[in-house]
Each structure stands twice: as structure tokens, then as C-alpha cells.
């Protein structure tokens, strides 16, 4: 067992963990249930969280390595997410919702890095977030409508 401290959603969380505890399991056990698991092969993007402001796959990060770092899940970024997810809801593109947290987290990362992306830049940045329901186009329309709304303001 290892004692670790992670700055999780703005709060210092200390816990004893196994050497092979994955960050995704650590997060879910600390009530960050937005973090979802969709595969075992790093392909789906459902488990995306921000570590030191960088989007990563929490299924492939040992909790031990996250020690001392800052981690944000969707639970900690409700306000930032709320600024744009309504536009995706207006498209009905939330659908089953299971990919949404990972998709929203990576969209947050995209918009922080590139506040005015082109459609191609949006597609490229979010390519690692699979969605089987929406066909992606509605997610894109939602993000585009949000960006347009900013310009209109």
C-alpha cells in the first residue's frame, strides 16, 4: 500500500492505495462517478480527465503516478461545462450520454487551448472520443453554435 495525495477537483485527497490502482478506479471510489470505462485498450476516450490541465486517459494512469498532481473530473468543472453543453443538448446529441463526460472534458481542454477552433480542428482534437449514438455531427453543430453565440455577444 502507498499513501498518496492528489489535488482532486480543488481539494486535497489523501488515501492509501495499491501499487496497481488505476486513476479511473481511484476517482470512481472518490465519488467521481462521471468517469466512465468503455474499453481496455485506450481507444474510447470515456475516461478522459484533466491532469495538470492536460486531457489524459485515467484508465492508463497509475494513481501512484498522479500523486502530487492536480486532477479535474467533470464533477469539478460543472460551471465551465455548463457554458456550452446546453448547445449540445439543443441538438439532442447527448443521446445515451455514456460518452458525454469524456467528450465534455476533452472539449473543455480543446477550448482552453484553442478558443476559436475550425470544424476540422474540433474533429481532430476530439478524434479519440468515440460515440456510437450521435454520428458526431450533432456534437459538432452544438460546439459550433456555442462558438457562434460567443461571437454574437
Amino acid at each position: 500500500m502507498i499513501e498518496i495525495t492528489i489535488n482532486l477537483n480543488g481539494k486535497k485527497i489523501s488515501d492509501r492505495i495499491e501499487a496497481d490502482t488505476l486513476l479511473i478506479d481511484f476517482l470512481r471510489s472518490h465519488n467521481c462517478l462521471s468517469v466512465k470505462r468503455g474499453c481496455e485498450t485506450t481507444n474510447c476516450g470515456l475516461c478522459t480527465v484533466l491532469m495538470d490541465d492536460t486531457p489524459i486517459l485515467s484508465c492508463s494512469m497509475l494513481a501512484a503516478r498522479a500523486a502530487g498532481h492536480t486532477v479535474y473530473t467533470l464533477e469539478g468543472l460543472q460551471e465551465e461545462a455548463s457554458s456550452f453543453v446546453g448547445f449540445i443538448a439543443d441538438q439532442g446529441a447527448d443521446q445515451c450520454g455514456f460518452c458525454n463526460p469524456g467528450f465534455v472534458m476533452n472539449t473543455i481542454a480543446l477550448l482552453r487551448e484553442n478558443p476559436d477552433p475550425t470544424d476540422d480542428e474540433i474533429r481532430a482534437f476530439l478524434a479519440g472520443n468515440l460515440c456510437r449514438c450521435s454520428g458526431y455531427e450533432g456534437q459538432l453543430r452544438g460546439i459550433r453554435n456555442y462558438l457562434n453565440s460567443l461571437k454574437e455577444q
Partner: peptide
């Protein structure tokens, strides 16, 4: 809008 849309998009524990 779907009735559950914001719950889903904000990652609430509903599964």
C-alpha cells in the same frame, strides 16, 4: 431538449 440531457452532459451518476 431531452429530459435527461443536462444530467447526462454534466456526468451525473445515473447508470
Amino acid at each position: 431538449r431531452k429530459k435527461d440531457a443536462m444530467q447526462l452532459l454534466l456526468g451525473k451518476p445515473v447508470y
